[in-house]
Deep mutational scan, measured.
Amino acid sequence: MQRVNMIMAESPGLITICLLGYLLSAECTVFLDHENANKILNRPKRYNSGKLEEFVQGNLERECMEEKCSFEEAREVFENTERTTEFWKQYVDGDQCESNPCLNGGSCKDDINSYECWCPFGFEGKNCELDVTCNIKNGRCEQFCKNSADNKVVCSCTEGYRLAENQKSCEPAVPFPCGRVSVSQTSKLTRAETVFPDVDYVNSTEAETILDNITQSTQSFNDFTRVVGGEDAKPGQFPWQVVLNGKVDAFCGGSIVNEKWIVTAAHCVETGVKITVVAGEHNIEETEHTEQKRNVIRIIPHHNYNAAINKYNHDIALLELDEPLVLNSYVTPICIADKEYTNIFLKFGSGYVSGWGRVFHKGRSALVLQYLRVPLVDRATCLRSTKFTIYNNMFCAGFHEGGRDSCQGDSGGPHVTEVEGTSFLTGIISWGEECAMKGKYGIYTKVSRYVNWIKEKTKLT
C-alpha cells in the first residue's frame, strides 16, 4: 500500500490518463441519441435557420407576430419608411378606419389613436360632414345658397324668414311668412316636400332668348283662358290664391305678392273693366268669414305684352289694390325667389296649380277651390304637342294621358313649387288646347323671366 501511494504521488498524470480511459469505455446513459432527441424537440425550422439574422431580410411573422416588435424591426421587413409607417399605425392600436367614419364618399386613412378623412370636392370637416359648395344638395341650405369668396357655403332665406341657429334652416321672422300653410287642420295635408338634388348652379339658368321682337298675326285659340281631375282644397291650404270678379264672377285667378299687390295673367284683364279681388276665398257660393274683398285701382301688364300681336306672350300683369290686405292664416303671400332659384325650383319637376275653373272641358265651374299636382314636361315634348308657338318664356306641365289639367277660369292662378315646406311661385296658368285632352298640356308663363320686374313694381313704400 505504501508503494502504491508513492507511485500516485510521483505520477499524477498517469492516474488522470487511467481515469479518462475508464470513462470513455463506459456506456453513456444520461444523453439520448440524435434521433430520439429530435422526437422530443420537434420544432419547425425557421426561415433563416442556421444563418445569422443580421444578414437576412426581415420576416413579418418572425419579427412582429411571434413577439412584439419595434418600429426598427418592422422597418427591416418593409425596407421602406412609408410602408412601415402605414403598417405601424394599425399594428400599434388597430384600424381606426374600420367603422368607416368618413361621410359623403370620403376616404379614410388610419393613424395612431386617430384617423384622417380625405374629402371629395365640396366637403370638409373631420368626417367630411361639412358642405362647402352650393353645387351639392344646395349646400344643405333649406332655401338659398351662395358661395363666399373663400368658396364656403353661405345660406340665406327669402323675405319674412331668418336663418336658424344651425345656419342652414329657415324659420319665420314674421307672423305670416310667405308660402307657408298655417291653418292647423290643413298642415297635415301639406304636399310632399321637395329635397334639393345635386345641381350645376353655374349652368342652372337656361341660355334662352326671349323672342321679344317676333311679330306674329293673332292666333285663334280655343278655350285658351284655361282644375280638371283635381281635388277639393281645404280652407287655408292655398292662402296665396285669390279669385278675380268682373263682368262675371271667378273669371280668373291670381296670387298675393304682398298686402297691396296681386300677380295674374295679362290676358285676364281689360282696361276700363272694374275688377274686384277676393282673398281668403274657399267656396265661392258661401260666406265663410275668411274672405277679404278689395278693388283694383291700377293694372300693370308687362311692358312687352301686346294682345294685338299675341294674347299669351309675356302673359303676366300686376294688380294694385285700393287697401292693403290683412295677412292671416287664410290670406298669405306666395314666396318669389330670384331668377336663378325660381328656375331651379321649376326644374324640380312638379308643381301645384289651383283655381275655381271648370271641372271638365266646357263644363261647370268649381264651387270649392280645386288643386292638382302636375309634372313638368320637357321642352321637346311640349313643342311636338301643339302647332302653336311655345315661346321661351312659357313652359308645359300636365299629363300625356289627359284627364287632369287646369281649365277655363283658372287662368292667372299660381303654379307653385314647394321647397322644404315653403311654396314659391314658378308659373302662372296661361293657356292650353281644350282641357285635359290626351297628348295636350297646360301652358304656363315662366315666372323666372319676370321676377325682377315683379319685385321692382310691387315694392311697398
Rank of each mutant, 00 (worst) to 15 (best):
K446H: 05
K109F: 07
P375C: 04
A436I: 14
L244D: 01
M65G: 04
H415M: 04
W431V: 14
G236V: 05
C335W: 00
V199H: 10
W118H: 13
R83C: 06
L19A: 05
P175D: 06
E418T: 05
N304K: 08
K455F: 05
A265I: 01
F424D: 00
L20Q: 02
K137S: 14
L41R: 09
C170W: 01
L325D: 01
C102Q: 00
E82G: 15
P44Y: 10
A308H: 11
S70N: 14
E286H: 09
E285Q: 09
V248K: 08
Y330C: 03
E320M: 04
I112Y: 11
E193A: 13
G13K: 14
A317E: 01
G272C: 00
R3F: 12
N313P: 03
R191A: 13
C252W: 01
E259A: 10
C157M: 00
L425K: 00
N245H: 09
A9H: 08
T194Y: 12
V228K: 08
E124Y: 13
I454E: 00
Q2P: 14
L327S: 03
D150R: 09
G355I: 04
G179T: 00
K234S: 13
Y115F: 13
L318P: 01
W261D: 00
S217Y: 10
L32H: 15
K362T: 11
Y341W: 13
E86P: 10
K168C: 06
N213I: 07
P177K: 01
F399D: 11
N135A: 12
T186K: 08
N245R: 03
R379V: 09
F121P: 15
A307D: 06
K51H: 11
T209G: 12
I214Q: 12
V153M: 15
H289L: 06
V243W: 11
V154F: 12
T422W: 02
L19M: 06
K438R: 15
L52F: 13
G280L: 02
T194R: 09
E259R: 06
R364L: 08
G351L: 01
N104R: 05
S354E: 03
I297K: 05
T29V: 15
E124H: 14
G50A: 13
G357Q: 11
K440F: 04
T290H: 10
W431Q: 15
H303G: 08
W88F: 14
E98F: 13
S169I: 05
I262A: 03
K293L: 14
V263S: 02
V269D: 02
F176M: 05
D232N: 14
P375S: 15
C157K: 00
E54R: 08
V263M: 03
E323H: 06
N113K: 12
F31L: 15
R162A: 08
N166R: 02
N258P: 01
P172Y: 05
L14T: 04
G94F: 04
L130F: 09
Y330D: 04
Y444C: 03
R43V: 15
K137F: 08
D315F: 01
K68V: 13
I284E: 05
D200N: 07
R298C: 02
C69W: 03
V56E: 15
T225F: 07
I214E: 11
L23D: 02
F224S: 14
S70D: 07
I297Y: 04
V447A: 10
H302N: 04
I454F: 00
I334K: 00
T422Y: 04
V269P: 02
K438H: 15
E193H: 09
G179H: 01
C18S: 07
E340K: 07
L32D: 15
T84C: 04
T218E: 09
G50T: 15
S423Y: 13
N104I: 02
N38V: 10
E281K: 11
V30I: 13
S220M: 06
K455M: 06
L346D: 02
V377N: 02
K168A: 14
T81C: 04
Y450W: 01
E401S: 08
A37V: 15
T381L: 09
E433L: 05
Q408F: 14
D33E: 07
M65D: 14
E66H: 06
V228S: 10
L189K: 10
D131P: 11
Y305P: 02
E27V: 04
I7R: 15
M65P: 11
R180V: 04
V263F: 01
S448G: 08
Y47V: 14
S70H: 08
F221N: 11
P101N: 05
E66C: 03
G439N: 08
V199S: 08
L346H: 05
D338W: 03
E66W: 04
G402I: 11
V278W: 05
F424C: 00
V153E: 06
K293R: 12
V92F: 08
G254P: 00
E259W: 03
M394E: 02
S354G: 13
K446R: 07
V257S: 00
V374G: 02
E67Q: 04
I309N: 15
L14V: 12
C396N: 01
V56L: 06
S114V: 07
S255W: 00
L321A: 00
K234P: 05
V202F: 12
H267K: 05
M437Y: 14
N59G: 06
K387H: 15
T225D: 12
E67S: 06
G412R: 04
G160P: 00
S25F: 15
V416W: 09
F87Q: 14
N147K: 15
H34W: 08
C141Y: 00
I344W: 07
A317F: 00
R180E: 02
Y450A: 01
C178D: 00
E159R: 05
E53P: 11
L211P: 09
V199M: 11
Q2A: 15
N48L: 12
C407D: 03
I210L: 13
H314P: 02
N258E: 01
T133K: 15
K260H: 05
R180Y: 05
K293Q: 11
V56R: 06
Y161W: 10
E27H: 08
I262L: 03
F144V: 01
N258I: 00
C252N: 01
L321M: 08
V4F: 15
V359H: 06
D33F: 04
I136G: 10
V359P: 05
I390M: 09
H303R: 08
N310H: 10
G246W: 00
Y330N: 05
Q241D: 03
G253H: 08
V227C: 09
S114R: 11
C97K: 02
T133H: 14
G105K: 08
R46M: 13
C69E: 03
F196W: 12
S411D: 13
A265Y: 01
L425W: 00
V154Y: 11
L460S: 08
E82W: 04
E10Y: 04
K293D: 03
W261N: 02
N100M: 07
L32Y: 15
S354N: 09
V4W: 08
V326Y: 13
Y312F: 12
N127I: 10
Q143Y: 02
N5F: 13
H400N: 09
I299M: 08
L460H: 09
E286A: 07
G236E: 03
V56P: 15
V269Q: 03
V296H: 01
C382H: 02
F345P: 02
E418M: 11
L346T: 07
N104H: 15
V277D: 00
S49T: 14
C178E: 00
F424R: 01
E193Y: 14
N48G: 05
Q216C: 06
L19E: 01
S25D: 05
A26R: 01
S354C: 11
Q167T: 09
I17T: 04
N306W: 03
Y201M: 14
N135E: 07
P333S: 05
G236H: 08
I336A: 01
V447S: 03
Y161N: 00
E340A: 14
S423V: 11
E10V: 14
F78D: 10
I7F: 10
Q219E: 10
V174W: 05
T426P: 01
Q370G: 10
R162K: 08
Y441F: 06
Q96F: 10
P197D: 09
E54N: 06
T190W: 11
C117K: 02
C145I: 00
V273T: 04
L60D: 12
F251P: 01
T16N: 04
K234C: 03
I7S: 06
T190S: 11
A149Q: 10
R364N: 15
R384C: 03
W453K: 00
F360R: 14
C128W: 02
S11W: 08
L321F: 01
F87I: 10
S184L: 13
N393K: 03
R373L: 06
